[in-house]
Design a binder for these strands. Sequence first.
DNA 1: TGTTAACCGAGACGGTACGTCGCGTCTTTCT
DNA 2: AGAAAGACGCGACGTACCGTCTCGGTTAACA
Lengths: 202, 202, 202, 202
Amino acid sequence: LATELPGTRRPGGRTERTRAAVVQATLELLAERGVTQLTVEAVAERSGVHRSTIHRRWASVDGLVAAALRSATEHHWAPADTGTFEGDLRELLLEVVRSFTEPGHRELPTASVVAAFHSQPAADALHGFYQDRHARAAALVARAAARGEIPEATDAAEVIRNACGPLFYRLFISREPLTPGHARTCAAATTAATRAGAFEAR
Amino acid sequence: LATELPGTRRPGGRTERTRAAVVQATLELLAERGVTQLTVEAVAERSGVHRSTIHRRWASVDGLVAAALRSATEHHWAPADTGTFEGDLRELLLEVVRSFTEPGHRELPTASVVAAFHSQPAADALHGFYQDRHARAAALVARAAARGEIPEATDAAEVIRNACGPLFYRLFISREPLTPGHARTCAAATTAATRAGAFEAR
Amino acid sequence: LATELPGTRRPGGRTERTRAAVVQATLELLAERGVTQLTVEAVAERSGVHRSTIHRRWASVDGLVAAALRSATEHHWAPADTGTFEGDLRELLLEVVRSFTEPGHRELPTASVVAAFHSQPAADALHGFYQDRHARAAALVARAAARGEIPEATDAAEVIRNACGPLFYRLFISREPLTPGHARTCAAATTAATRAGAFEAR
Amino acid sequence: LATELPGTRRPGGRTERTRAAVVQATLELLAERGVTQLTVEAVAERSGVHRSTIHRRWASVDGLVAAALRSATEHHWAPADTGTFEGDLRELLLEVVRSFTEPGHRELPTASVVAAFHSQPAADALHGFYQDRHARAAALVARAAARGEIPEATDAAEVIRNACGPLFYRLFISREPLTPGHARTCAAATTAATRAGAFEAR
DNA sequence: TGTTAACCGAGACGGTACGTCGCGTCTTTCT
DNA sequence: AGAAAGACGCGACGTACCGTCTCGGTTAACA
């Protein structure tokens, strides 16, 4: 049936206040406990919104998480400009390292990743987030190409994926420690590969 | 005092049969439904072992998963030998791509990754698995160094991490499609970076 | 001060159409599902009147039921005239048996009885209905008295109660089957008792 | 599936204590609030037994009520012996009047009647109760027949139904007041009808 | 080869969270 | 300005698992 969900027809006043309270509570609890411990019950209590209202509008924990992630995506971001390709890359990777290691901050981004394993909406939200990141990071690659540091036809997104990949690998796959030093190594490696033309579009 | 778990004092006969049945059932269900849908109830039913017994010996779903992963790790593996560094790398990466994309097979490895987010034992098991992989893959790097393809002092594990990272990034972070083509790109990029000395120890 | 209910000030046009639709839907659903399953939700859907409107005008399910019962009571009835006291009584009782046993018809009268347990308005409506019945049935007793079949001072309502009581007892108390045969037995018994003067007013 | 309900396989110790506590709480709440207001929640709280346990063993409010009624049936009863048929009948009817009118006592029997409208198990329990009553009351009829007060072949159950019916009619159908005086009228009427042979078996 | 400690099967319960339904009360929005 | 329609608070339901407890019955391992 997929009858239209509540909250779309009268999106002002109380409805909006409810939405905001719930999203806020979800983000907090996501950071505090992670997706697995996130319960509708807790969100209801923290937000002061009744449990059944949450079920009506977000259907389940998945929907809640997806909505929270979407809302978290809405802030703008741009890569730092250090003047060199490797420097820019290093800054970007250091930011990744920081956001996934600093206690008190890493919980939310980590939760996003976990959530994506549990629900399609969350996976979509995560995908959207990184698409956005890739697009914004392309600026960094364009600058380097303009400076002649790297080949003209370099695939920007691929550069980013190659630079970030190993960091996430340590975090979530081999489960090894991650330090700023690794960001530097990755920046160097990716720079070398890029200069060598490994990411030239076909 | 964590009183010794059952199943250690008399590890033969029925005890062993029980263990095997439970681990088998867990692996199957892990593959079929993923960690999130894995319930003690289902494992009990599938294995024919009573729920109480499972709780007694494995305490919880986490323990169940960790045990299953440990048992799944016990088979030996060695990187293919194609004669060239890039070739070896490519084969290794293709294997990764296959094991995480082939329907009917990808479920278990994926479940391992997810499980690690949910329980420390599972995280440890995953870590152990990849430590083993890195150690075995070192052979590939040693061969290349012996052939003079890459610098002597190359950090083998770091090579592997850099090569695999981007693939996992696509799979679990940016949630983009993963194809054999990506394995080739990564192999090439890592080869370039390695030759350029990006992974020389310190 | 019970603020005047809506629908009393402007009882024409749309207001009246709404009332009729709601009452009609209530009667239908009462017959189809019984009081217990009767929900404002269902009445709203069936009648095409918004739930809030129903709440405004009938306050609750009770009010709905009471209104429906009142409207159902408004048809006129008179006992059959067979020429004899016992014959008249038998006809009346057969009518009772029929109206409470015929599938497709028994639901509404049964629902009235049940409803009376749940709400005072419904109980009042039911009481009113039977008061009316008793008054009309008095004609039957008067005829018999005029014919000299039974004592002059016979309490008509009491005759009816005694005749009908056992049938309802089977239906709703001892929960035994009810057939036309029982109507005959009751008619005979009541006739005997009446002739013997058991129902002479004090 | 109708898999056997819990509480049947190990009917001693804790299981029995649980059962008793729940039945007791149900009876109390039934008397205090009536069937309609009876909730599993309240029974759980009052009995100290967990809600899910109640659901497991009694499935729903219906089952709860039925069990309570069955247990209430288990006490033995015998009609008083006054020496005369009409006297015995009068005593019996006075008992009915009392049990359905005395505040603080009438609630439970009334609730039984209402419950029977709501669930088959409750209806069955009620039927069982009255079958038992009819059987026990037969003694009264037998005594009268032995004394030669009434015909030999009198159908005892039918006598009881005819005597009680009008009282219940007042209570639950026409919703009129019920007093001890009505018991006397009914006893007299039924005595007259019985003596006249109205309840002789076929 | 017995014994006996260890393990397992089985039933029941307390407990947490879920998702659903229905009621009755606001309150936004639209006419 | 006022009603209709939308959203919410609230209470209860029934379900699914979890983890615990208490029996009693087997059985592996050791004397």
